[in-house]
Amino acid sequence: MSGSDSRGSTLELEGIVKSYRRGKERTLVLNDVSLTVRAGEFVSLIGPSGSGKSTLFRMIGGVEKPDQGRVLIDGEDRTGHKGLISYMPQQAALFPWLKVEDNIRFALVSTGTPKREAKEQAAQWLERIQLGHVAKEYPHVLSGGMQQRISFLRALLMRRSVMCLDEPFAALDALTRADMQRWLLELWEADRRSVLFVTHSIEEALVLSDRIYVLSPAPATVLRELVVPFERPRRADVWTSPEFVELKREVLRLLEEGHSGTV
């Protein structure tokens, strides 16, 4: 499951509770969410849209504080601490006034990489993922898939031991998406960072992850934790195996149950 030589850290969430005040009413968004991402593990979080997955990410990123519960990194309480994770949002979030290489460079520098190293890394890796030819372009000339590749590279190169990916491929078409998943797996399997991956696609979660947490609709809580047994490196045709179909059916059943349980 996890490589012993991985650069990852352990991320634990303990009993996270969060509610928002809307007018006079308090709406509970996260109801006692606990989960663990072990060092070098790829964990997916799957749940219906609006189930508070992004809110959970904000807690991990330290942008918001939970009402109750703790965020632990390598066993230390880091609740409300910023600057400990690398992050890839749903929209590529490239800065339109910075050229591609500068987008990567500035993000690396602001997360603690020395300037010269950031420059070298950006150039080297863009070449390595066959995007060297767009290094000097502004982001708006790139396709959605290319922008996401650069956004992922930016997250990967940050000196952070936990990566949080928030539905990074949700806005892409199916073909580009499958392509991106294979590409991401290849890069990740070579590096084995701890990853928490949010998605609402069951196949995507099954293809990529070591484990899956299934969330209920809001107020979100963990319905089930599933271990994905397929070997690493993942085969591209893993989705054709009967086991895969069985797991998919189970997740689907859980999601439906959770849905009918609350409505």
């Binding site: 992050y87 949002p89 979030a93 500035f106």
Partner: peptide, 27 residues
């Protein structure tokens, strides 16, 4: 907003937010 959110999540400082996001966006 999504660029603002991104900078918050990676823990960028106030000065970086000004220099990299707010000022260029206001040009």
């Amino acid at each position: 907003p999504h660029l603002r959110e991104y900078l918050g999540m990676i823990g960028a400082s106030r000065w970086e937010r000004f220099k990299r996001l707010e000022f260029p966006a206001s040009l």
